Amino acid sequence: MAVKLPLSTAAVAAALCFIIAPPALADETGLADVHTMRREGAQLCFLDHFHYGSSAGQASERAAKAVAVRSWSGFVDLEYGSDWARYGRAHSKSLKCEKSTSGWGCFVEARPCK
C-alpha cells in the first residue's frame, strides 16, 4: 500500500535528496596524484611529467598531426581520465612532423593540464 505524503512534505523530501546527494565526480582515475603539480593560470598542470603521442604513414601532414594528438589524448585519458586528456589545455607542447616514403608522421609531447 502506497503512503501519500502531503505535497509540502513531498517537496521537502525531494529537495533534501538534491541537497544530500553526493556531487558528481570528475572523470579521473586518481593516478594523477602521484605527480607533482602546479597552478598555471586557471589550470592545474603536471610540473615536469610529459606524455607523448605519434603517428606514421598518413596521407597528409594535417592527418598526421590529428592522429598524433589523438594518440596523446587517448593515452592520457586511459591513465588519468578525460579531465586531463584535452590537448588544447596541455602546456609545454611540442609537435614535430616529417614526410617519409610511407607518408607523413608526427611526434607530439606535452604536459597534461586540467
Rank of each mutant, 00 (worst) to 15 (best):
residue 52 Y to K: 01
residue 78 L to M: 08
residue 30 G to H: 06
residue 38 R to D: 11
residue 51 H to E: 10
residue 27 D to R: 04
residue 28 E to Y: 03
residue 92 S to T: 06
residue 101 T to G: 15
residue 72 W to N: 02
residue 99 K to R: 15
residue 24 A to C: 08
residue 33 D to E: 11
residue 97 C to G: 05
residue 69 V to W: 03
residue 91 H to D: 11
residue 24 A to I: 13
residue 16 L to N: 04
residue 17 C to I: 15
residue 20 I to D: 07
residue 78 L to R: 14
residue 48 D to R: 08
residue 33 D to T: 10
residue 37 M to W: 02
residue 50 F to T: 03
residue 17 C to Q: 12
residue 42 A to C: 01
residue 36 T to P: 02
residue 74 G to C: 12
residue 76 V to E: 02
residue 38 R to S: 14
residue 33 D to P: 00
residue 29 T to D: 06
residue 77 D to C: 08
residue 51 H to Y: 12
residue 71 S to A: 11
residue 69 V to M: 09
residue 21 A to K: 05
residue 70 R to E: 10
residue 25 L to R: 13
residue 95 L to Y: 05
residue 13 A to K: 12
residue 66 A to M: 12
residue 81 G to E: 04
residue 17 C to E: 12
residue 20 I to S: 09
residue 92 S to P: 00
residue 58 Q to T: 01
residue 16 L to R: 07
residue 13 A to Q: 11
residue 71 S to H: 14
residue 55 S to A: 04
residue 60 S to L: 03
residue 41 G to L: 09
residue 101 T to R: 15
residue 24 A to K: 13
residue 77 D to A: 15
residue 24 A to T: 12
residue 93 K to Y: 05
residue 64 A to C: 07
residue 94 S to H: 09
residue 55 S to H: 03
residue 63 A to G: 08
residue 29 T to H: 04
residue 101 T to E: 15
residue 19 I to K: 08
residue 93 K to D: 01
residue 20 I to R: 06
residue 61 E to R: 14
residue 35 H to A: 10
residue 21 A to W: 08
residue 98 E to F: 07
residue 87 Y to K: 01
residue 22 P to K: 07
residue 42 A to S: 13
residue 42 A to I: 09
residue 41 G to S: 09
residue 34 V to T: 03
residue 22 P to D: 04
residue 96 K to P: 00
residue 79 E to C: 06
residue 86 R to N: 14
residue 57 G to W: 04
residue 75 F to C: 00
residue 99 K to A: 10
residue 81 G to F: 07
residue 76 V to M: 08
residue 36 T to S: 10
residue 18 F to C: 09
residue 53 G to A: 03
residue 86 R to M: 11
residue 86 R to W: 05
residue 25 L to W: 10
residue 52 Y to G: 00
residue 89 R to D: 13
residue 16 L to D: 01
residue 99 K to L: 13
residue 17 C to N: 11
residue 22 P to A: 06
residue 44 L to T: 10
residue 28 E to P: 02
residue 101 T to H: 11
residue 64 A to I: 06
residue 60 S to R: 02
residue 53 G to L: 02
residue 12 V to W: 09
residue 12 V to E: 11
residue 83 D to R: 12
residue 49 H to S: 12
residue 16 L to P: 04
residue 93 K to F: 07
residue 91 H to P: 00
